[in-house]
Design a binder for these strands. Structure first.
Lengths: 353, 353
DNA sequence: GTTTCGAATGAAACCGGTTTCTCAATCACT
DNA sequence: AGTGATTGAGAAACCGGTTTCATTCGAAAC
């Protein structure tokens, strides 16, 4: 008659002729167990391929080493987000925790709790913290506050009327400085007429515009940006911006795009008009997403350290949990990646060939 | 004096003047609770923002609605994998479960269990199933078998000496048929000399080659493929293949690349030599990864339904759990996406301009 | 040789739910 | 009105660990 498989500490205890308390001590590497007892217990565990029940452990421990990466209103197939996730997962791998990956979609005026909410948020004890990535609205943050669960927000894509980055529980990168840097780079190549192309209704693009504007100084007039709103995709926005650029700012010699996808659209628009990059016009993107890696010409862009953002978010979450108090926001720098889409200014201007 | 926050069913029971059993019944929508009792309990729950302890629930339930998406030896920043993850997450959202996302790196001869193994695998009860994505080796599968945990494998990227797809517990897509289809498409455009470029040491690329070969029929000689192995990246492989192609198969008018990244490298190689696509030569990729979306010319390719694969894997896992027996593998079809990188054959051949 | 202390171990309480069993109250039907 | 079936609700066991507390035992201290 086959013996019942060993599943619990009780089974181990019985087999080894000790109490469950001792088995538990062995499991948790408690020092007060004699070497020979420990060895015997371990032996039984090994031979029965015993794996402790995680739920029972957590029930008594009162917590979990598990956080939730919640991607709001965005798709993880977009490398920007999956790379943040990667940083998060790296950190948890590092400290021995887990990440539950979930997504949610909601509007700016959604009410919470609601049915769109993943179950994991509704229960207590599933997770010890929340990492809010993607695009978020204040209505959801208000709800998360009420949950009394530690959380860290990806600060750049919070939709508010303000330009400042969120002050607490958040990790952001310095969008203004990145755009400033890119603009200075173009200036130093000799460009005077630099046009920003983007959707200024979005705070994150607006911040990039601000960086651009301060770098431009007196050269920037309110009209020096091409501001297209409510476009279905950034690529489309870029494409549509090109005819406007040619019409309104024909003397432009360099473009700073709100992001890489927009730059791709602009590139496409240029190609249709026979405008060559970088010979006729220079262009700088923003984000350094994976999707541009095979582009020709290779796009000069402002690299956002996505993995680092993820890692920092996870790290800040841990610190928040320990400190039990809201910590200062972390702001991460960007890096200008110079590739082939920019050239020195050589007395030319946008023109249809 | 402030009352202690309500945290448990006992608190609710006391506040509502009922027993915990009743509270539990309300929580689980058990029918045998009178309307007014139920309402009173719900009222207390609402006002105290009660959220049940998930660990306690799972302890008694003996399981979890949580599976683990384990990405082996690959990076989630690659859209191929993040889109499979997306399909998985969609499914779990649909059925109300969770996905823990983890990665692991190991060699073909790794021994298990080992320290690289995520904690989640070592404990029992954390997850109710395993979704094995990325590139896997038999050594790991053997270990997972011993775990007695339901699992589903992404079948295409299992490293074996064989060409067949795994027979059980797996979801795959039909690589052979996809390559066959692409090759027929090129033939119908009038191309006779079609060259396959790839690394034939990898079973998954080998399968694509097989599809190509059968479609070519008698036209395919053993030399009709450019087989480059041990390249650090597929892009580099593609780039290096171009000079070989020009040297060995100068009469080639169309290329089937092992995957999209390789196609990008080939495209780059062509550009360096002044060979125009599709005017001088046609090219078809494979996978339809997100990274090619901004390419010019837009790449014709074999689309692999990544989200669908993820969804099917998750679904199969559920069925496996219920049925308690290994199910037949699922094989998913591909779709040829015709874009701009192929043209009708017009009596030309590869030549340096 | 007794006292004292720390190490090793077991018994039992506990974590926060679910579920079975039991029983009282209500309802349907003859 | 009497009987059996059904419904509503509580007491207690249970899920599988961890932890506190008490106890035993041997070694060191006096």
């Amino acid at each position: 008659m086959k013996k019942r498989a060993i599943r619990t500490v009780y089974d181990i205890a019985e087999a080894a002729g000790v109490s469950v308390a001792t088995v538990s001590r062995v499991l948790n590497k408690h020092p007060n167990v004699s070497a020979k007892t420990r060895e015997r217990v371990l032996e039984f565990m090994r031979e029965s391929e015993f794996r402790p029940n995680a739920n029972a452990r957590r029930l008594v421990a009162g917590g979990t080493e598990q956080a939730c990466f919640l991607l709001s209103n965005r798709h993880v197939a977009h490398s920007f987000h999956s790379r943040i996730l990667m940083g998060v997962e790296d950190y948890f791998q590092h400290v021995g925790g887990h990440v539950v990956f979930t997504t949610i979609e909601y509007g700016p005026d959604a009410e919470f709790p609601n049915d769109a909410l993943p179950r994991i948020i509704r229960q207590r004890g599933d997770i010890n913290g929340l990492l809010l990535a993607g695009v978020n609205h204040p209505c959801f943050l208000k709800y998360v506050d009420r949950l009394h669960i530690p959380y860290v927000l990806f600060g750049n894509n919070l939709v508010t009327g303000l330009l400042e980055l969120p002050k607490k529980n958040s990790v952001s990168f310095d969008e203004v400085a990145g755009a400033h840097h890119a603009t200075v780079f173009l200036s130093e190549l000799g460009h005077r007429r630099i046009t920003f192309i983007g959707d200024l209704s979005k705070p994150w693009y607006r911040r990039r515009y601000e960086g651009y504007r301060t770098a431009m100084g007196t050269r920037a007039s309110p009209e020096s940006a091409i501001d297209i709103r409510n476009e279905e995709s950034a690529f489309e926005l870029g494409r549509k911006a090109v005819p406007l650029l040619v019409a309104k700012h024909p003397d432009t010699t360099a473009v700073l795009a709100q992001d890489d996808e927009t730059a791709c659209g602009i590139l496409d628009g240029f190609r249709r008009l026979g405008i060559r990059v970088p010979q006729d016009i220079s262009i700088v993107g923003y984000d350094d997403i994976t999707e541009i890696q095979y582009l020709h010409p290779a796009l000069t862009t402002v690299r956002v350290p996505k993995e680092k953002i993820g890692w920092s978010m996870a790290e800040l979450l841990s610190r928040t949990r320990e400190g039990r108090h809201a910590l200062m926001p972390e702001v991460i720098g960007t890096e200008l990646i110079v590739r082939d889409s920019c050239a020195k200014f050589m007395v030319k201007s946008v023109s249809v060939k």
